[in-house]
Design a protein around this nucleic acid. Sequence first.
RNA 1: CGGGGUGUAGCGCAGUUGGUAGCGCACUUGGUUUGGGACCAAGGGGUCGUCAGUUCGAGCCUGGCCACCCCGACCA
Length: 493
Amino acid sequence: MAKVLTSRADDYNQWYQDLVTKADLADHSAVRGCMVIKPHGYAIWEKMQQALDKMFKDTGHVNAYFPLFIPKSFLSKEAKHVDGFAQECAVVTHHRLKTIGDTPETRQVVVDEKAKLDEELIVRPTSETIIWNTYRDWIKSHRDLPLLINQWANVVRWEMRTRLFLRTAEFLWQEGHTAHATKQEAIEETERMLDVYAEFAENFMAIPVIKGIKTPNERFAGAEETYCIEAMMQDGKALQAGTSHFLGQNFAKAFEVKFANSENKLEYVWATSWGVSTRLMGALIMSHSDDAGLVIPPKLAPIQVVIVPIFRSEEELKAITDAANKLMTDLRAKNITVKFDNNDKDRPGFKFAQHELKGVPVRLGIGPKDLANGSVEMARRDLMTKEVVPMEGLAQRIADTLDDIQSNMYKKALERREAMTHYVNTWAEFEAALDKGGFVMAHWDGTAETEARIKEQTKATIRCIPLNNKQEDGQCILTGKPSKERVVFARAY
RNA sequence: CGGGGUGUAGCGCAGUUGGUAGCGCACUUGGUUUGGGACCAAGGGGUCGUCAGUUCGAGCCUGGCCACCCCGACCA
């Protein structure tokens, strides 16, 4: 068997890189830090979008679209916000090009200096400012609230160092921006959307997550409180998979967004924002995939079942095709997506390997023996097992198998996370646990100074303070000062 | 942005002292094959990352730039 991927044991980073490109998910582009998302990768992203979009709509949100460009002056209206993003913004300064040079050899396109913009435009790193500037006009009365809007968009953050899906200069995401009459409602919204993300991660992506809040250091610029879901990758590193922010009245005050309450008094509105991005693709890959390639949970697989015919003659192929067509009709009736891979170029063994690389959850092999016996060979991608099963009742059996794969993938990821979560009480234990990899649950004295010192010494950050965290007396692993709860430390992507 | 590395066909690589580019896989055509990455035969594909310089002559030497990888700093 020809090896296509670097193994995880040999070089985890290289494995990830190989997998993303070899499984046709994405490629590097001609533009620094930007990727081309290829059809197979985009198909998975579309499945994520569809599931999330439905969840957003089911919780009362509607979609809209705001501009890519933000006037520079908007960004500076919220002081902490601009500090958070100023370092990584792309700036549009001109609106016209011109051609210089008389011959084809010397001809080139240059910026027309006469076409300088009066006010420079920022390519959005996130859309709070343009949206809140717009909301000012939309919100006049408590009857306009709550305003529950989401947008699917691209954003640009000029990153120093990029990795496909995990951190790219341009990425795709959704950003929800909501306005509420009361603080309580806004906090409820923030928590509701965190729950939506957690449910999506666990039920669709089959990734267990810890819901928690960020420390002030790790908080979104401009937020009062940042909630997050944290996932653990196979190498034990943490990955922030989604965030939901309670923005308080910071943006309402910066953009003068006030509403008349029922007593006709003007009040500033309360805000939230929340987002997940194509980074989830990275989480999906690093949670489940193996040395043979991608493993995709059935609920997000663009193709859930592939049928590979095994044949010698045209007659055999025709008989197999008839059987496959019947089966496909049954599967589609159950909303299972299925592909019949009948190209005559590749041999069955090659097809098996290809579909494993691309992560198709269930593969069926149908050959002359199966037609004679009324059976098929069914292979599971998650367990890499094969069994011969009867054609009778197969569609239902496959539906059940897909369900089982979905839950098995979650269970496996959960077991791995539990095995790689360490509870420690001393500094020596803490360092040892970090070197093993995974989440380290430890007491912390609650100060930013201690958090920074730990990060400096170990590269580990506080991923979150879990919601509904168990309260227990303990001592900070670094300073020995008293602590009431353990927080999640890890090295992170 | 700093330190290190890499860049030759779609992918992985070789290319000697500077003398005008090759191998494996993939691709095309034909045939034989087909239950775990088939085989035979004949073909096609390259401004050697890019721009300049040195030279009679550059894949090879020199410099600039670009991209990617690893390690830092920064960050979702």
